[in-house]
Design a protein around this nucleic acid. Structure first.
Lengths: 263, 263
DNA sequence: ATGTCTTTGTGAACGCGTGCACAAAGACGG
DNA sequence: CCGTCTTTGTGCACGCGTTCACAAAGACAT
């Protein structure tokens, strides 16, 4: 029974909390910028501001890595860049394949942020035969048929899926079977993978939907009486489920918006 | 002093926890798929599996919305689709502008996931004059000069930034000044915005770096003695900071990997 | 060497999110 | 109408992550 889990509890076993790991790239980016400006040291306060986090949180994060940093002075920028890079595994070369060279795949292939951080686009793969050989971002697109061979020959362990949703799981299975153990998924689907394989997903429309939620809440609070909702009043709820939360008993969270709203 | 905060504590004020809001789009997607297959009802167990989450978590999430669902049967798919859509504010139309029509911007403009969920690309904006008028995804690109006018005329409250990092803050400031209150940022920078403006960021390279971390850990644990790290042994740490965590006192977390490793 | 002043590193408290486990609700069959 | 069986809704406990607040550490001046 495929559980479809996303393999969350992976880090706790050895020191560094997941939340901290997720912030390390943020610090690294800020530090790199400082390094380019030849700034020798930063205080936790300054660096925290640059990374957009709380300074206490930053210090605690760094404390998991060890005691780099000098009291009364701050952190040595170059040294910290190295330590974080090493911790993240960016001191080694990571060959990456991108599968699905549509608009998004092409954008990813051209994205400079990859190459600059130890990631190397080893191959671009697409199922469309007419794409084969066509160079994107200077790299010739290869056909899906050769996926396994490409993975193996280049020792790829990280794969990026930028295919349509329908093809994602199939591509994922092939990547995993070929030896990929980390997947960055841009397709709007839940991928199910065996244990030991990490999946991170980026869903563009989900982010927008979350924004819409907050946006609606803002609008609804400032102008009460103007909520939105102008589509047809959906399918009739199953008779039994009409009873909403604590009807008649509790006051209701905020005067429950009726199912059908005035236009 | 620009704090650069990302405006986190926004939802708690009214019921639904942020973590739940972030999962609603996931449920919605799964439900939509079921709806298209004309499935009338689902149990929390089934839906949870489809969405890739724990069933208890799903039930608790839904309990924040109210008591939709029938014990012994499950949830009415159509009804739930409507309730979640309404809660997320997707029953109304959200005009969106995309600023920065490079590879990524074009990919976003073409991305079907937007239009299908109540989001409408109202305009594409780019600073390059040679792009002006050129249609991308059927929409003519407009010049940055007209940004304020476009925002105002279309009543845009959500903006997507897909510019290079250097231009992001400036674009952000203009968007906010023109009335945008929600921003989806793809540029690798920390945006600072006034209170009341929501920012969500998507950073492609950060996701890869997190994967690399886990990947390195996997590799390091299975084959101890083969870690990686082959670059020069960084800048010399400031003399005082050389002392690492509990040297001589504590045993060390896991035998601190030496700075220079054998190839 | 001693004192002062800055900044780190962290102990402790708190709050949120997660997951278990179970009682209550209701469908369904007899 | 009653009993059984399924599935929801949620009280509770636990663990992670965040934040505060402060003692210890060291730079730097005298």
């Amino acid at each position: 029974m495929a559980t479809g889990r996303t393999h969350r509890p992976a880090t706790r076993s050895r020191g560094i909390p997941e939340a901290t790991v997720a912030r390390l790239p943020l610090y690294l980016r800020a530090l790199t910028a400082l390094s380019e400006r030849s700034v020798p040291t930063v205080s936790s306060e300054e660096l925290a501001a640059a990374a957009g986090v709380n300074s206490a949180k930053l210090r605690k994060d760094f404390s998991y890595l060890g005691s780099y940093g000098t009291r009364g002075v701050g952190y040595d920028v170059e040294y910290l860049v190295y330590q974080i890079s090493r911790e993240l595994g960016l001191t080694q070369d990571w060959p990456v394949v991108i599968v699905g060279i549509g608009n998004l795949g092409a954008a990813l292939a051209n994205y400079g942020g990859f190459a600059s951080r130890g990631f190397r686009v080893a191959a671009l793969i697409d199922a469309d035969p007419s794409m084969a050989g066509k160079p994107v971002a200077g790299i010739p697109v290869q056909h899906t048929d050769d996926l396994e061979m490409i993975i193996e020959e280049n020792g790829v362990s990280i794969g990026v899926i930028a295919t349509p949703a329908g093809a994602a799981q199939q591509v994922c299975d092939r990547l995993v079977a070929a030896g990929v153990t980390s997947i960055l998924n841009f397709a709007p689907t839940v991928l199910s993978v065996p244990d030991g394989v990490d999946v991170r997903k980026v869903d563009l429309s989900i982010e927008l939907q979350i924004l819409a939620f907050h946006e609606q809440r803002k609008a609804g609070e400032e102008t009460p009486g103007e909520g939105g909702a102008d589509t047809t009043p959906p399918a009739a709820p199953p008779a039994a489920a009409v009873r909403r939360r604590g009807e008649g008993t509790e006051p209701g969270p905020d005067g429950d918006v009726p199912a059908v709203m005035p236009a």
